[in-house]
């Protein structure tokens, strides 16, 4: 018996509340976003294609998406590890660590950017040990990936953690009663249960990395064709008053974001398929 609909509900204020919601949403989000598409529509198709497939632009896609993918993979692996350790084991400082996992959400990106740059630079805490071994992190695509690992770190942890917490101990007990060893239980029972959450976290971390700007530009070196990310290219075009070019690239980024959002929504639907 679904009781639904504004008219069936005695709680007051539905019409003004929904009205204001849509008004504010349109004003702040929808209209400004549509400006991007209208501006793009004023470009000719050939002009648009030329703008978004110029060699320097293509190189920036490679850097951005490549590093994002690498970072998301690293985060997926370590995210599961951290979530597992936080949920399953007891050790001193666990509560503190748990709270600190969200640091990348709370720490402004510019701060993260200059800090990472300084740690991995030639004289930095880690850079001074890495560079003699020929590992250059700062001012290379590797540095971009490091920054992306930092900002994407909480996503996998925070999507996998609740799944692990809600997991019934009985499932594992059943598996071991049926003769599975610990690793088999993990591989065959726990991992499939966590998989949708891992993929969701992976997608969220990837999407965040693709759009990221502040924490990357300080460590990236920003060399065209080598370590220049797409968001930076948009800003460069803007500074050169190339509005059309900036808009065209931004449209590509926005479409990618929408696709990622769609992906994430589908993943979340999929992850609920076993929900009671």
């Amino acid at each position: 018996m679904a009781r639904s609909g504004g008219k069936n509900n005695v709680l007051p204020g539905f019409t003004p509340a929904l009205g204001y919601t849509i008004f504010y949403l349109s004003l702040i989000v929808l209209i400004p976003l549509s400006a991007l598409f209208f501006k793009t529509a004023t470009l000719s198709w050939d002009g648009f294609v030329a703008a978004v497939t110029a060699p320097r632009v293509l190189a920036s896609y490679r850097v951005t998406f490549g590093a994002s993918l690498a970072a998301a993979v690293i985060n997926a692996f370590f995210g599961v590890l951290v979530a597992w350790v936080l949920v399953r084991y007891r050790f001193t400082g666990k509560k503190l660590i748990d709270a600190l996992v969200d640091l990348p959400f709370a720490l402004p990106t510019a701060v993260a950017g200059i800090t990472l740059a300084s740690i991995y630079s030639q004289n930095g805490w880690l850079g001074r040990y890495l560079e003699p071994h020929g590992i250059k992190v700062a001012f290379t695509p590797l540095g971009i990936a490091v920054a992306m690992v930092f900002i994407g770190l909480p996503f996998v942890v925070r999507t996998v953690q609740p799944v692990l917490e809600e997991l019934d101990q009985e499932i594992e007990e059943a598996a071991s009663c049926l003769g599975a060893n610990r690793w088999q239980t993990f591989r065959r029972v726990l991992l499939p249960t966590m998989l949708p959450a891992i993929l969701t976290g992976f997608a969220l971390a990837f999407a965040r990395a693709v759009g990221e700007y502040g924490s990357i530009i300080f460590i990236a070196g920003n060399m065209p064709m080598v370590s220049e990310i797409t968001p930076l290219l948009i800003i460069t075009k803007l500074e050169q008053y190339d509005y059309a070019g900036a808009t065209a690239i931004a449209t590509v980024m926005l479409v990618v974001s929408f696709l990622m959002l769609l992906c994430i929504n589908l993943l979340q639907k999929w992850s609920r398929r076993f929900a009671e």
Partner: peptide, 28 residues
């Protein structure tokens, strides 16, 4: 507190700014 058609779509729209690159957010 109310149910109406298009609710989950509205929630997706509200979440939209999270998935837009900060640079694009400024650009618009």
């Amino acid at each position: 507190k109310f149910s109406f058609r298009g609710k989950s779509f509205l929630i997706t729209l509200i979440d939209l700014p999270f998935s837009v690159s900060p640079v694009v957010s400024g650009l618009i």
